[in-house]
Simulated scan of single mutants.
Amino acid sequence: MFLEDLTAKINNYMEDLEYATARIFIEENIQLLSENKNMLNNNARELLKFLLEMQKEGSKPLTRKDMAIINSINSFANKFDLRGLKLMVKENASLLIRKEIPLYLSADAKILLDGMGPIHKEG
């Protein structure tokens, strides 16, 4: 019964566009879900596949604190608050080094941070 409830919750979160919550459930039960991925809907399977690939590469999942920092950076960039953005970059330089971080940044944040130097556009 646990597996059915878990997959139903994850599928519902994915349908409701609550990806962060779905990701937490998937990360906590990644082994069980990888063995029973046929019970997940298409979007949840893609998220599981992505998380398994990250795990193979040795990447650690982002914590809530990391996500809060990224959201703050996006907010400062959206408001064009360079002072706040510089402070966030200075205090969290080690987070911005990670190669997957640009995937979570808004377009404004990518442009500003690329100009400031902490990240570089690929391609």
Rank of each mutant, 00 (worst) to 15 (best):
L47R: 03
E122A: 13
M14S: 08
S106F: 02
E4K: 02
D66V: 07
K49H: 14
N43G: 13
L51A: 09
I26G: 03
L48C: 03
D16R: 12
F80V: 06
Y13I: 04
L51G: 09
M116W: 07
S34C: 04
K56G: 13
D66C: 05
M39E: 00
G123I: 14
P61V: 14
R98C: 03
R98G: 03
L103N: 14
G84E: 05
I69D: 02
E15G: 07
E53R: 11
A77F: 05
K121N: 12
N43A: 13
A44G: 01
M54D: 10
I73F: 00
M67S: 10
F76P: 03
N74W: 02
G117E: 03
T63S: 09
M14R: 05
I119G: 01
D5S: 10
F25H: 00
D16L: 15
N42K: 13
N41Q: 08
N38L: 15
N36R: 01
F25W: 02
P118H: 04
N43E: 08
L82A: 03
L32T: 03
N36Q: 06
F76K: 03
L95I: 06
T21A: 10
S106H: 06
L82P: 00
I26K: 00
Y104Q: 05
K99P: 11
L6I: 00
S106Y: 02
G123C: 06
S94L: 11
M116V: 08
L96D: 02
E122Y: 10
I24L: 15
N71D: 13
K49L: 13
K110D: 08
R64C: 10
D114N: 13
A93Q: 14
L82V: 00
N78A: 12
L47F: 07
